Computed example of a mutant assay.
Amino acid sequence: MAETPLKPVLQKPPGYRDPNFPAANSGFRPPPRKPVLPPSFHPRKRRSRFCRVCCCSLCIFLSVLILLVLIGAMIFYFWFDPKLPRFHVQSIRMTRFNVTKKPDGTYLDAATTMRLEVKNPNLKMTYYYGDTAFDVSFGEGGDETATGTTAVPGFTMGKQSTTSLKVETKASNMLVADDVGNRLRNGHRSKRLPVNVEARTKVGLGLAGLKIGKVAVTVKCDGITMRHLDGGDMPKCVINMLKW
Results as ranks from 00 to 15, higher is better:
Leu37His: 12
Asp230Ala: 04
Pro35Asp: 07
Leu184Gln: 06
Gly213Arg: 11
Cys237Thr: 01
Arg44Cys: 11
Pro121Thr: 05
Ala110Phe: 01
Trp244Glu: 14
Gly223Val: 00
Lys214Cys: 05
Asp179Asn: 14
Met226Tyr: 00
Gly209Ala: 03
Leu108Trp: 01
Val9Cys: 06
Ser26Gln: 08
Cys59Ala: 15
Leu6Met: 10
Pro22Thr: 07
Val69Trp: 07
Phe155His: 06
His228Lys: 13
Lys166Met: 05
Asp109Ser: 14
Pro103Tyr: 01
Leu67Asp: 05
Leu10Phe: 03
Lys124Trp: 05
Leu62Cys: 12
Arg33Pro: 02
Pro103Gln: 10
Gly213Ser: 15
Arg189Pro: 00
Met157Ala: 08
Phe138Asp: 02
Arg33Leu: 15
Thr112Cys: 03
Pro194Asp: 01
Trp79Leu: 12
Val215Asn: 08
Lys124Ile: 02
Asp18Thr: 06
Asn25Tyr: 09
Ser63Thr: 11
Ile239Thr: 13
Asn20Trp: 04
Arg227Asn: 04
Pro22Gln: 06
Thr100Gly: 03
Thr156Cys: 04
Asp131Leu: 07
Cys54Gln: 09
Glu117Gln: 09
Gln11His: 10
Ala177Trp: 01
Leu6His: 07
Arg46Ile: 08
Leu70Gly: 14
Lys243Asp: 06
Thr162Phe: 03
Phe78Glu: 09
Pro85Lys: 05
Arg227Asp: 00
Ile239Cys: 02
Asp135His: 08
Arg44Glu: 14
Glu140Phe: 01
Leu67Phe: 13
Lys214Met: 12
Pro19Tyr: 08
Leu70Trp: 06
Ser190Lys: 10
Arg47Asn: 09
Cys51Phe: 11
Pro32His: 08
Ala23Asn: 02
Glu198Gln: 13
Pro5Val: 11
Lys83Ala: 08
Trp79Tyr: 15
Glu117Met: 03
Leu6Thr: 09
Lys159Pro: 04
Gly154Asn: 06
Leu210Ser: 11
Leu84Gln: 11
Lys166Thr: 13
Ile66Ser: 14
Gly204Phe: 02
Lys102Gln: 14
Leu116Gly: 00
Ser40Cys: 12
Arg33Lys: 13
Arg200Asn: 11
Arg17His: 12
Leu10Gln: 13
Leu210Ile: 09
Met174Tyr: 04
Val99Arg: 03
Ala199Lys: 01
Met241Gln: 12
Lys191Thr: 00
Cys221Lys: 06
Lys45Tyr: 05
